[in-house]
């Protein structure tokens, strides 16, 4: 659970907390950047050059550099956690890049290099977390969530279908429905009937009226 949150948070948190100094170079670089931006002047050229260590120059061997870059693209810079080691200019990333170059020169395999870093910095250094018991929720959480919500959806839809009752219509009902659909003027009777009038006389006349209606509709049917 914890690892899920940790991984979730990486996505959000890119604040440079000032809880403790990460690296000298880092704080200075941030300072340089903010002052430069604030003044909107090409400060970088004159003043920063002396203080600001540029990214380590591209190695003499482009093959090694390329392999190092592909490797570090999937590695997290622990100081600036939303950047990969390939992108980051923090001292930490410079060091790791240097070490990876050295190890490539020493004919280490990619796996050996990754293991070297994981041994020291933990799985957190990897952007692709390995499948383990602690990361099971991270890997299977979305699937579990999907299965659970589909189960819920199916259950909900079935329950709704059950709520709509099947009504069986008698012949009388059918006739009445046909009659009601037939002519709008009769709807009045229907409403009257529902009002359950107390007046006996009225109700009898109404029944007669309805009988008459039914017979006329029957006649109509015959005629057709």
């Amino acid at each position: 659970m914890k690892s899920l949150f940790v991984f979730f948070l990486h996505g959000l948190n890119r604040v440079y907390t000032d809880r403790f100094t990460i690296f000298r170079f880092n704080s200075i670089s941030i300072l340089c950047l903010s002052i430069g931006v604030a003044l909107l002047l090409p400060v970088k050229a004159s003043w920063a050059e002396t203080e600001y260590k540029e990214a380590v120059p591209v190695a003499e061997n482009p093959e090694i550099e390329q392999r190092m870059l592909t490797l570090t693209e999937d590695l997290r810079c622990l100081v600036c956690q939303n950047e990969s080691i390939a992108e980051s200019r923090a001292d930490f990333s410079n060091d790791i890049r240097r070490i990876i170059r050295e190890q490539i020169k020493a004919n280490k395999t990619d796996k050996e290099i990754i293991d070297f870093l994981v041994d020291r910095y933990g799985d957190f250094v990897l952007y692709n977390p390995p499948m383990k018991t602690t990361t099971a929720l991270l890997w299977f959480g979305p699937l579990i969530f999907f299965l659970f919500s589909s189960w819920f959806l199916i259950k909900y839809l079935k329950g709704r279908r059950r709520e709509i009752k099947e009504v069986t219509l008698s012949d009388v009902d059918r006739k009445r429905a046909a009659h009601l659909l037939d002519d709008d003027s009769h709807t009045e009777n229907h409403i009257n009937k529902n009002n359950k009038l107390d007046n006996q006389d009225h109700s009898t006349t109404l029944e007669q009226h309805q009988k008459a209606d039914v017979s006329t509709s029957e006649n109509k049917g015959n005629n057709v």
């Binding site: 948070l9 956690q81 041994d119 020291r120 910095y121």
Partner: peptide
């Protein structure tokens, strides 16, 4: 609850494998 717990975690405190 999830978000609240998430806020209290510090992503800088990377547990050391050592």
């Amino acid at each position: 609850v999830f978000l609240f717990v998430g806020l209290s975690l510090n992503p800088r405190q990377v547990p050391s494998p050592l």
